[in-house]
């Protein structure tokens, strides 16, 4: 089979993805999801598998800057892309304001949904710096949390929005 999207070695494909600003390579089977590639090939286990059929959002990453289900993306489809995972959000020990908001507002319990929630919220605030409560709830409606009842997650995102606005207001 003639193959683009990476050279094929007996049905396997060489791919290169920039993950959290670090170029990474792997040789994967076509059926390997981006989720499994991140977790198994690169040991980036912050991206979680909650359903593997696209409903729960636990596997959300930013793919070329926009939220995507890593379980519904083949690793080969992401060849050449930029991916941000939860591990890439903090700068050293300095949490991203959305992460801070989740901590401050107790927006997590078991933490399993948290990476997907946080990345979805990061994208929301990039596109809508002052969302209403309903806008926050709508933006997060594709991410299931089984623990919190969402109230503190919504508060966390609102908290982060305020913090980010403050930051951009002070030069």
């Amino acid at each position: 089979m003639s193959v683009t999207g990476g050279a094929a070695v007996a049905g396997r494909h060489a791919i290169a993805i920039t993950v959290n600003d670090v170029p990474r390579r792997a040789t994967v089977a076509a059926r390997t999801s981006l989720l499994d590639c991140l977790r198994e090939e690169w040991a980036l286990t912050g991206t979680h598998a909650g359903c593997e059929h696209g409903v729960c959002g636990a596997c959300t990453v930013l793919l070329d800057g926009r939220p995507a289900r890593a379980c519904l993306t083949l690793a080969v489809q992401a060849d050449g892309a930029r991916v941000t995972t939860i591990e890439g959000l903090a700068e050293g020990d300095r949490l991203h304001p959305v992460q801070e908001g989740f901590w401050e507002c107790h927006g997590l319990q078991c933490g399993f949904c948290t990476p997907g929630m946080v990345l979805t919220a990061v994208h929301l605030l990039e596109t809508n710096p002052a969302p209403t409560e309903i806008e926050i709830r709508e933006a997060l409606a594709g991410n299931l949390c089984m623990c919190t009842g969402y109230q503190n997650i919504v508060a966390a995102v609102a908290w982060a929005a305020a913090r980010l606005r403050e930051r951009s207001a002070t030069p």
Partner: peptide, 21 residues
């Protein structure tokens, strides 16, 4: 919950995609 094994191509031009398909 993993797919069956399959191969994959991402042709750069439509004609090739049509032909492969």
């Amino acid at each position: 919950m993993k797919p069956v094994d399959f191969d994959y191509v991402a042709p750069p031009v439509l004609e090739e995609a049509v032909a492969v398909l």
